[in-house]
Design a protein around this nucleic acid. Structure first.
Lengths: 215, 215, 215, 215
DNA sequence: TATGAATGAGATTTCATTCAT
DNA sequence: CATGAATGAAATCTCATTCAT
C-alpha cells in the first residue's frame, strides 16, 4: 500500500512543532529567527519547513493568527459577561484584558511586526487569509459587544479594532530592548519604564468608559 | 570660532539633505531604502552617509525624532488652550490631533518600525538619545497637561504615552499594503478599510473623555 | 510468461506516459520541467518517476532518442529514393529534411541541451545506450547513403553526422527566447530573425551538393 | 582628494581577471563554475564579482563575446584573401577555420550553452548587447564575403550564420564527456570518436563549395 | 509496486559598512 | 573631508533523489 498522504492530524502536528520552535526562538532572541534556526530547533531539515509554510513570514503570521484566535476565544465570554453600565463595563474589561495581554508578549510583539516586516514577503493568499480571519473575529466579537452596549450600535467591531490598536501601540511605546540597561537606571527615562499591564489597564479603562458613558 | 560654526552649519545641512532624501524615498516606496539609494538621492557618495550617521537606522530614528518634535511643538499650544471640562477637552484634542496625524503617514509608519526594525541596529548612544528626547518631550507636555487637568495629576506624561500608543497602534491596525487590492473590494474586509482619521478621532475622544471625566 | 509480458507492457506504458508529459511540459515552457511537474502531469507520484527513469535527465535523453529514431525512420526511405546526381540529390534531401525538422522543435532544442545539460547528470549506462543508438542509426543510414553515392564511400555515417551537426547548430544560431521582443523589431537584429526552415534548406542543399558533386 | 572612480583601464583589468578565472575553471571542469569559485580563483570577494557583472551568466556571455570577436578578427582577413573560384575558396576557408576552431574548445562549448543555459538568467540588456554584437559582426563579415562571391549576393551574412551553425553543431555532435571512457574503446562508437578538426574541415569544404559553385 | 514526505546540499545575490586614497 | 570599490556575512528557497510504509 502506498504511503498515505499525511493525515490532517499529522500535518497539524508538524505545523505545531515548527510554530513552537519559531515562537521559542523569537521569544528568546527578540528577532525573527532564520529558517535554518527554526528547522534545527524543530529537529527537521531546512527544506521540510517549506512543506508546511510557503515562506518564513507565513510561519510568524500563523503564530500571530493562533495568538489572535486565543485572544478572541477569551474575549468573547468576557464580553458576554460584561455589565451594561459604563463604569462597571470598563472595570470589567480593562483589568482582565490587560492582564491577559501582559502575558502575551509575542502576540503584541509580532503584531507590531506584522505591517513592517511580515507582510513584506507573505504570499498574497496567506495575507488575505490572515486579514479575513482578523476581520471575521472582529465582526463576531463586535456583534457580541453591540448586544451589550446600545451606545456602540453599529460600531462594535470598529471600537474593538481601536482597542486592539491601543494594545499593540502601547506595547510598542513601552517595550524596550532587553539589552538597554541604561533604561533601567536613568531617572529621565522613568516614563518609558512604566509597567505595561498597569498602563494598559488605565488606558483601556479610560477608553471603554469614555466610549460607553452617556454624555 | 567662525570655522567651527561654519562646520556645524555644514554638518547640519548635510544631515538635513540626507534626512530629506531618506524621507522622500521612504514615503514613495513604503520600505526602508538602502544606503546607496539614500546617498544617490542626496547627491553624495555612499561612504559619506556614514560621516553624518553611524548606521542606516540612525537616519530613520533621526527622522522620527524630528517628526516627534514637530508633533510636540504643535501639541503644546493645543494643550495650553484645552478646556478643563472633560467633554470639551476631548472635543478640543481629538479632532485636532487626529487631523494632524492623518497627515503624518511617515511619523506613524516609522514609529511602528522603531521597535521591530530600527532599534535592532542602532548604536546605544543614538538609542538613548532618542529615548531621552521622547521622555523629555512627554514630560514637558505632561506637565502642561497636568496644569489643565487635576484629574491627571502625576500621570500626565503617562497618559500622553498612552495616547501616543493609541495613535501608532491604530495606524498599524488600519494600515495596509497599497498592493493589497483585494482589501479594497472584499466586503468581509470592510472593517479593515475604515478611515484612519475618523477612527482615531473617535478613539481619542473616548479615551480623553474617559480619562478626564469625573466618576 | 504472460505475467512478464504484461509487466513489460505496463512498464512501457508508464514510460510513454511520462515521456509524453515531459515533452508537453518542455514544449510549453521551453525549459526542463521539474520532476514534480512531470509526475503531476503524468498523474503519478514523484517517487514513481524513478521506477521508470534513473534520473531526470534520462527522461529527456529517452525523448531525444525517440525523436531521433523517428527522424531516422523517415530519413531511410528518403535516402533510398535519393537520385545519384549531386544537384538532384541535394534538391531531394534538403527541402524534405528541413521541412521535417522545422516541425520538430523539441528534437533540435533537446539535442542542443544534450551536451550542455542532459549529459551532466546521466548515468553512464543510459549515456552509453544513447550513444550506441545514435551510432547504430548513423551507421545504418550511412550504409544506405553510401550505396547511392560512390563519392561518399566509407564516409556516409560521418557525412550524416556532419549534416546532423548542421541542423542542430543552425537551430541554436537562430533560436531565440520567445520573450525577447526586441529581437522581433530591431532592424540590426534582422539577421538573427531568419526563417529556420529556409536557411536550413539552403545550407543543406549547399552541403549535400558540395559533398556529392564531382570536382 | 576623493578616491576616483575606477578608470576604464582598471575596470577592464578587473573584468579581464574575472573572465580569465571563469574561463580557466570552465575549461578544467567542463561545467559553469559557481560565482564563489570564480571569485576565489580571481582573488576577490564574492560580492565584488557583482560590481563587474550583473549576473553569473553575464560573465560567460562576455567570454563568448570576446571569443567571437577574436574569431571574426581572424576571419575577416581570411575572407579578404579568399579566391573567387568555388573549389579554391573552399580549400582556402575550410582548413583555416577548422584549425582555428579546433583550438577554441571554450568558444564552441560556450556557444552551445548560450541558448540552453546562459540566456536563462541574463539581463535583457546584456542579452541584447550580445545579440547586436553578433549581428554586427556577421553583417560586416558578410559584406566582405559578398564582395568576393557574386553568388552569395545579399546572403553573405546568412551564409556565415549557417557556417557558424555548422561549427557549433558539429562540435556538439562530436563532443563527449571526458569521463566517458567507454567511448574511447568501443568499436560501435567509433563514428562518434571522429576528429573534430578533420570532420569540420570536410563539412566546411563541402558547404562552401556547394554554396559557391555555379550550377 | 507506489507513494510522497523528508532531506539537505547548494547557489545567487544584496547590502551595510569599512577604509585606502 | 569625500569617495566608492571592496568586502563577505547572511539568508532564502529549490529540487533531485531517497526510502519507510
Amino acid at each position: 500500500m502506498p504511503r498515505k498522504a499525511l493525515t490532517d492530524d499529522q500535518r497539524h502536528a508538524r505545523r505545531a512543532t515548527l510554530l513552537a520552535a519559531a515562537q521559542t526562538l523569537y521569544r528568546h532572541s527578540g528577532q525573527l529567527p532564520t529558517v535554518a534556526q527554526i528547522a534545527e530547533a524543530a529537529g527537521v531539515a531546512k527544506g521540510s519547513v517549506y512543506l508546511s509554510f510557503r515562506t518564513k513570514e507565513a510561519i510568524f503570521i500563523a503564530l500571530l493568527e493562533d495568538s489572535f484566535d486565543r485572544l478572541l476565544a477569551g474575549l468573547l465570554p468576557l464580553l458576554r459577561a460584561m455589565p451594561a453600565e459604563a463604569e462597571a463595563a470598563a472595570s470589567h474589561i480593562a483589568p482582565a484584558l490587560s492582564a491577559y495581554l501582559a502575558e502575551q508578549r509575542e502576540l503584541l510583539s509580532l503584531a507590531g511586526m506584522a505591517n513592517a516586516v511580515l507582510e513584506q514577503n507573505l504570499p498574497l493568499a496567506e495575507m488575505l487569509a490572515f486579514k479575513r480571519r482578523l476581520a471575521l473575529g472582529l465582526a463576531q466579537a463586535g456583534a457580541v459587544l453591540e448586544m451589550r452596549t446600545p451606545r456602540l450600535a453599529g460600531r462594535g467591531a470598529a471600537f474593538l479594532l481601536q482597542t486592539w490598536g491601543l494594545c499593540i501601540g502601547l506595547w510598542q511605546a513601552l517595550d524596550a530592548h532587553p539589552g538597554l540597561v541604561a533604561l533601567r537606571d536613568e531617572p529621565d527615562l522613568a516614563i518609558l519604564r512604566l509597567d505595561f499591564r498597569a498602563e494598559l489597564c488605565h488606558a483601556l479603562d479610560a477608553m471603554w468608559f469614555g466610549a460607553l458613558a452617556p454624555r
